[in-house]
Write a protein that binds this DNA or RNA. Structure first.
Length: 636
DNA sequence: CCCTTTAAGCTTTTT
DNA sequence: GCTTAAAGGG
């Protein structure tokens, strides 16, 4: 292998890096990179990986470990690194989620876990129902009830606030009134009880991994000898449980940590993200803080609005620079005020139609966002768009079927059975087929030709059946036939998530439902698959789901007190949510307000904007946002 | 049994 | 903030 001299190294892909990014890439110290939307945080990690590998500063065979929150972010980063520095070097770049890292560790080093907390082989992932079931089995001991006046606790509260509150082992000193319950639930989950198989939640798995590293210096050493560089993505979302694991694993080692995140996009506090994580990390790991100032994504006028909002969130001026690809006057941010949702739908849809037809914006480059309850907020718009033959859909409903192997394979197989010769689908489906067949046949050494022959005959067989499908029920049988062909037990063994019956059933039912909807529209299976994939649909999603994504145009529905009911309690977090929504837009952001809006119970209520007045003030202050009040609703 | 009070959900990912 | 469902009291 020929390595590059560090001073000769240049960023892959002709990328221009700002000074701070260049510094962090080449720094050998622990760093925390704070950077706003569109600054290229993930790209920085990808480039740093290339630098370390291509110069061999990350000395072969030492590896880089990158930890993300979501599988697709982890995969995305791995792909970028592979693309930039090739297959061979990128083999030493390991990109995982927190959960897969912890789960992999406890399974690989199972025997190193203290016996009391050692999970049995083949444990399941615990569901909320499992915990609910356990709690329903237990009665509060009378003496504890009398001494402390402990009340019954809901399963959700228990899982959220108690189950993984402390590091293992669970203490015996009575410091927590629910100690006995925590101990009992842990014991039952680890060992199984009555009709419950052994099952652990992901935070429990992290706790076990942390305990193992803390009590077993050899395993800890092995970890630290494998990975010399650690990347932490979306660091602002780190929970206490995750941070404890990172700290035990790497604090005091000679590993170099690089964390990237944005405190202005901290919208997961309610789910356990730590409050002051950047400072905590800086202190613990003696990390150097660097800020990226570029926003490569948004047009200048949108960045101007972001600037004012940043200031409101941080309390201080934030430096943001825009990309030279934009002209200074580029970017549109508007505030649309309506009488009611009917008028809102009519105007919004007219504009969307114009954007698609005249500005030639792709539907999937327009995003409709709401704070929550997106089906309620987008109902009338979806109906109206349908009249214009523009597809729009709740992206959340499709996210599982478009990321799970089994459903993707069914979609691939349908395309292959219907039309021969789609190389992309063929390769993917064949990989899956080989994996599962190999599993079914144990160690049988199948020749590739045999498998190809088998697969082709399956396709021929399915083709004739596909042609005869005339109902959703028949489609379901067809899908189940494919699933059963692969052997359900083999599927569960290779993809343990399918052991969760509820999840698996919903996956198949949803696939059938959406596929059938698509087929009824087009009478063509290839189009039905494209429809499920959402090739030309406008995505609709919550702010939380939109984080990390970008669109030419963003339409935010309902900048109203009603949508920001939590503002009084968590104005900081809601401002961040507003910031995330705004900063998804590359060129145009539109916020709507409707005087009248139906809630999820079907009641039409008057909307106000007193509570979130500060949002409107910020928009006005920026002097680039126009507020447009539309006329009375039109009569048909 | 009826009326009043209280609690919980809104926003989510992970094999 | 606003709803519904569950729990509690008379």
């Amino acid at each position: 292998m020929i390595y590059v001299q560090p001073d000769k190294w240049i960023p892959a892909g002709g990328m221009e890096l700002e000074a701070a990014a260049d510094y962090v890439i080449k720094s050998n110290k622990n760093c925390i990179v704070i950077a706003g939307p569109g600054a290229g945080k993930t790209e920085l990690l990808a480039q740093k990986a290339c630098y370390l590998l291509q110069t061999n500063i990350c000395l072969s065979p030492y590896k880089i470990l990158s930890i993300s929150f979501k599988t697709d972010s982890a995969d995305n980063l791995a792909k970028r690194v592979e693309k930039r520095c090739g297959k061979e070097l990128s083999r030493r770049f390991v990109s995982k989620t927190y959960d897969s890292f912890a789960k992999g560790i406890i399974e690989h080093f199972r025997m190193a876990i203290p016996e009391e907390y050692r999970p049995p082989i083949g444990y399941n992932i615990a569901t909320q129902d499992d915990i609910k079931y356990l709690l329903s089995q237990y009665k509060i001991p009378q003496d504890l009830e009398n001494t402390y006046g402990i009340h019954e606790i809901s399963d959700r509260e228990f899982t959220k606030d108690y189950l993984v509150k402390y590091k293992l082992p669970i203490s015996n000193n009575g410091s927590n009134i629910y100690e006995w319950l925590i101990k009992r639930v842990w014991h039952s989950l680890l060992n199984g009880e009555l009709r419950l198989q052994p099952a652990l939640t992901f935070p429990m798995i992290s706790r076990i991994a942390e305990y193992m590293f803390r009590t077993n210096p050899y395993i800890l050493m092995a970890l630290r000898m494998t990975y010399k560089y650690i990347f932490l993505d979306e660091f602002q979302d780190t929970t206490g449980v995750q941070y404890d694991l990172i700290k035990t694993a790497f604090l005091g080692s000679d590993c170099t940590l690089t964390a990237v995140g944005d405190d202005k996009q901290r919208i997961m506090a309610w789910a356990g993200a730590l409050n002051n994580i950047f400072n905590i990390f800086e202190n613990d790991f003696d990390a150097e803080e660097k800020e990226l100032v570029m926003n490569h994504r948004s047009a200048p006028r949108l960045v101007e609005v972001q600037r004012f909002l940043s200031k409101a969130i941080n309390g201080s001026e934030t430096k943001i620079e825009t990309s030279k690809n934009w002209k200074p006057k580029d970017g549109v941010c508007e505030n649309w005020i309506f009488e009611d949702e009917i008028q809102e739908a009519e105007i919004v849809c007219e504009y969307i139609k114009t954007w698609i037809e005249e500005e030639k914006i792709e539907p999937n480059d327009i995003c409709i966002i709401a704070k929550q309850n997106i089906d309620i907020y987008s109902k009338y718009i979806v109906e109206k768009l349908d009249e214009y033959n523009i597809k729009a859909r709740n992206e959340g409903n499709y996210q599982d079927i478009l990321s799970e192997e089994i459903t993707l394979t069914v979609l691939n197989i349908i395309v292959l059975a219907d039309t021969k010769g789609s190389p992309f689908e063929w390769t993917q489906a064949m990989d899956f087929f080989t994996l599962l067949k190999g599993y079914n046949n144990g160690l049988r050494d199948d020749k590739p030709e045999t498998l190809v022959f088998e697969f082709n005959s399956l396709l021929v067989d399915l083709k004739s059946e596909l042609d005869n499908i005339t109902s959703a029920a028949m489609l379901k049988n067809f899908v189940l036939k494919i699933v059963n062909y692969f052997n359900v037990n083999a599927l569960k063994a290779v993809f343990p998530q399918y052991k969760n019956k509820k999840f698996f059933k919903k996956l198949i039912d949803d696939l059938v439902k959406y596929l059938w909807e698509g087929y009824e529209k087009s009478n063509n299976w290839v189009d039905a698959v494209a429809d499920v994939k959402g090739v030309d649909s406008i995505p609709i999603m919550t702010i939380h789901k939109s984080k990390g994504l970008e669109y030419d145009t963003v339409v935010f529905i309902g900048l109203e007190d009603g949508a920001f009911w939590s503002f009084r309690n968590q104005s900081q977090e809601d401002m961040c949510a507003f910031f995330v929504a705004l900063s998804r837009a590359k060129r145009r952001a539109v916020f709507t307000f409707s005087n009248l809006r139906h809630d999820k119970y079907g009641h039409q209520r008057l909307q106000e904007r007193d509570e979130i007045k500060t949002f409107y003030d910020i928009l006005q202050e920026s002097q680039v946002v126009e507020e447009i009040t539309f006329a009375q609703p039109k009569t048909k």
